[in-house]
Nucleic acid binder design. Structure first.
Length: 278
DNA sequence: ATGGCTATCAAAGATAGA
């Protein structure tokens, strides 16, 4: 079973690339972030023709998370308990909760597609919002793991945090910036302390997952490692391979992020049905 | 690769990304 996460930066702009990649790379389940559309605008047909069902949470042109899967999707959950909101208070006096978290269960494995708030600037209200969002995510994840002991679970997505200095091309360029601040890194490492393991770093997989469109960042390989798959011990035991698909930053109209992929040693019903090819 | 970003929508400039 092959599982991946990818910040696609608009699914309507990228649908051809994404579906081609799913088929070519033989991916069973993809968590997408920044789909940048609501359900009525989502290109379901292209996924369906390739054999993928889609679940999504999209409210407007910002954010938006989704799953595409050719295995049955169960237990769809929009958002997590006590997720903070951001923006202008609504008629009920509440801050709107953005489309940044979607949970599903596939083949008995609990998976989340997460688009962590950017933070913008250290003195911007988006920054404490980011930290609170991450704290609530950790609490919700711990509660789930306590309630479902032994079930594999993975948090997948764009965390908007570079956990180590070498996860950005030049740490000096990030002085006083978000993504590398100690509170953000503490929030990331708190997820690990809660029992999650970086499926790629723990296996020695190196490389960036994001390169800015500006300043020739990709040709110069001036990127950031901010997209992750964090799995429980039960999930980690299933991982047989892991990689970052740097090739997807090339070619026409790429996303600024690339896919992060893991292979899992999991029996799926489809395996028996798949035709033998000689 | 002699380069200067890309996506969204009240459709032009504003907002957001990181």
């Amino acid at each position: 079973m092959r599982v991946a996460t990818w910040n696609v930066n608009s699914i309507r702009t990228r649908v051809g690339r994404v579906v081609d990649w799913l088929v070519r790379e033989d991916v069973d389940v993809l968590a997408m972030q920044e789909i940048k559309c609501k359900e009525s605008q989502f290109p379901f047909e292209a996924f369906a023709e390739a054999g993928y069902d889609v679940e999504l949470h999209g409210l407007n042109q910002w954010n938006g998370v989704a799953f595409a899967s050719r295995l049955p999707i169960e237990e769809v959950t929009v958002g997590f308990p006590a997720a903070p909101g951001f923006g202008k208070v609504d008629d009920a006096g509440e801050l709107p909760v953005e489309a940044r978290a979607l949970g599903v269960t596939v083949a008995g494995i609990r998976l989340w597609s997460l688009y962590v708030p950017n933070g913008r600037e250290l003195d911007n209200p988006h920054y404490p919002y980011k930290l609170e969002w991450l704290d609530r995510l950790r609490e919700a994840t711990s509660e789930w793991m306590t309630a479902h002991p032994g079930q594999p679970i993975a948090l997948m997505g764009d965390f908007n945090i570079a956990p180590f200095d070498h996860d950005v091309w030049d740490i000096a360029a990030f002085e006083g910036k978000t993504h590398v601040s100690q509170p953000e890194r503490d929030a990331f490492h708190a997820l690990e302390t809660a029992g999650l393991i970086d499926a790629l770093r723990s296996r020695g997989v190196e490389g960036y997952t994001y390169w800015d469109y500006q300043q020739l960042r990709f040709p110069r390989n001036e990127g950031m490692r901010i997209d992750f798959i964090l799995g429980s011990a039960a999930f980690d035991e299933l991982v047989t391979a892991a990689r970052i698909d740097r090739e997807e930053r090339k070619g026409d109209a790429p996303s600024d992020h690339v896919p992060v992929v893991v292979d899992l040693d999991v029996e799926t019903e489809d395996d028996d049905d798949r035709p033998m090819i000689f």
